[in-house]
Design a protein around this nucleic acid. Sequence first.
DNA 1: CGCGCGGTTGATCAACCTCAACCCGCGTGG
DNA 2: CCACGCGGGTTGAGGTTGATCAACCGCGCG
Lengths: 234, 234
Amino acid sequence: MCIAGGTLDKMGKTASDDWSMTTGGRLPAIDIPAHSHIFFEGDERRTLYLVESGWVKLYRTLIDGQRQVVGFANAGSVLGLESDGEHVNSCEAITPVKVRTIPIARLPEMFARDPIFSEQILRQVGRQLGAAQAQLAAVGVQSAEQKLATFLLSVSRLCDACEYGEFDLPMRRGDMAEFLGLRLETVSRKMSEFQRRGWIRMTSLYNCQLVNREALEDLAEGAEILPPAIRQAG
Amino acid sequence: MCIAGGTLDKMGKTASDDWSMTTGGRLPAIDIPAHSHIFFEGDERRTLYLVESGWVKLYRTLIDGQRQVVGFANAGSVLGLESDGEHVNSCEAITPVKVRTIPIARLPEMFARDPIFSEQILRQVGRQLGAAQAQLAAVGVQSAEQKLATFLLSVSRLCDACEYGEFDLPMRRGDMAEFLGLRLETVSRKMSEFQRRGWIRMTSLYNCQLVNREALEDLAEGAEILPPAIRQAG
DNA sequence: CGCGCGGTTGATCAACCTCAACCCGCGTGG
DNA sequence: CCACGCGGGTTGAGGTTGATCAACCGCGCG
């Protein structure tokens, strides 16, 4: 699953998130400590990475030093599909992460042997594309408050055990800002404001509780995707 | 090729843009008049579309009526890969367009028969993902002027016969604005400003000539991707 | 203790949005 | 033929959001 979009991939976990069938569960696993890089933009793309646990951020760095986080990913995501030859994003673990690798060189063989695998990979990358487009919509049209509300809801939905609306927010304020196209001061201010309004409660810097999910949803909704019925009007 | 990104897909045309090999050139072709829709968000996704000629825009509509254009595409692009089940974008022809259709139902069979086709499709969607991420970076961090400069350069590079820096800009001001995350007045103002500075010349509303490409490049460059060498510093 | 890092908060400012007027070309209909 | 409305575009004045710059807090650590 990934958030490359403020809107998380709404399809939720499906059979296609279980890669053990097609990959035989025999791929080597690697442990990555928090805040170290899995790859950099410009690195030769030798393998895909299958995230087993933990969170990573994908980002691009611009000449003036500005960065844009283009997505966050956790268990079930496949990394490295967005390029050809060289990685175009850098990928950093924001928590300790476990990944499995799939050598690029083995892909043709795997496609040939197992068309199901082709479809599974294609569905993954299609989702990531959809999520990236959703994020594009969010960054393009939403206000700072809307972006943040959408983001918090997305992350909360990704959390497996988020009873009582409590969930981990493993990234730093600056990472959120770089993802949402805001300054970290703005993120900080809006987070404080949400708390002041009694909408959220930070149990710690990196753990958040949704007190008034509705308010956040109303705010985010102002820029949600139209239900199909309405489109006829356009 | 597509612009889902201010940065156009830099890889340029390759053998993989020629679909006649794998699809046998036997797919039915359809003509779509300008400004009519090829599909709407919410429509059942029965086929992929292969663009043969013309330009389309892909967009999402939000509850408050705002729209975000998530990409423009012309010859060589495959449309409909970003979803599963239902289309999540609407697709409108901005010029007369010719497309060929690939029934979704036939995909498994085509994958099974021809692993090269799998790889070709995967490369296409990977590119679109990369382009969407590039656009995300542009919309997130660039100023209005930078966005517009980047966009003009991207479109000019897509044009086959753009000697003397002259090229068609087939979309309306509003479409550009919705793509760049700006208001159309802002686009209009900046276009005028570029003309006043002698950087571009509009031969007509929809045809543009780059008089001072360098200036535009300098402006856009302020937020281009880092060459790999620099990343070590981070 | 001092320092650095991540975060919060405040004051100021400018980029961009909003609203409104206006222009131009075109098709329609009297 | 001209009047009219309409769609797309341009331009102007003024307001708001979010960026910028700077101070400050709390914490962990050498």
